[in-house]
């Protein structure tokens, strides 16, 4: 078994209103130093996983995302798989 470091980036899907992103954008409108728009606030999850190889690790993480870590009605996600440092 190999040990992998897993990172999952979770973001609200485009059709979901993100009031946190809107609040950030709204307050920055008062600040002329930044021309920053289209804020969206998501979350990041990191963990380690033991699996046979990269492909089996990917399948396991995808299953975990679909069944628990991500709600695909409102969220989208990206998986990053790296070799874990021991």
């Amino acid at each position: 078994m190999r040990k992998f470091k897993i990172t999952i980036d979770i973001m609200p899907i485009d059709s979901v209103l993100d009031p946190q992103g809107e609040a950030i954008e709204l307050i920055l409108k008062n600040n002329p130093n930044y021309q920053a728009n289209n804020f969206r606030v998501g979350k990041k999850i990191e963990f380690t996983l033991e699996s046979n190889n990269n492909s089996t690790a990917k399948n396991t993480v995808k299953d975990l995302c679909e069944k628990f870590l991500v709600n695909e009605i409102i969220e989208k996600y990206k998986i990053k798989i790296e070799n874990a440092k021991n």
Binding site: V16, L17, P19, Q20, A23, N71, I73, I74
Partner: peptide, 16 residues
């Protein structure tokens, strides 16, 4: 809703 016994999701209130 998380158990998928009911459709949809309850999001953060619009006003936060």
């Amino acid at each position: 809703t998380e158990l998928e016994l009911l459709p949809g999701v309850l999001l953060r209130n619009k006003s936060l």
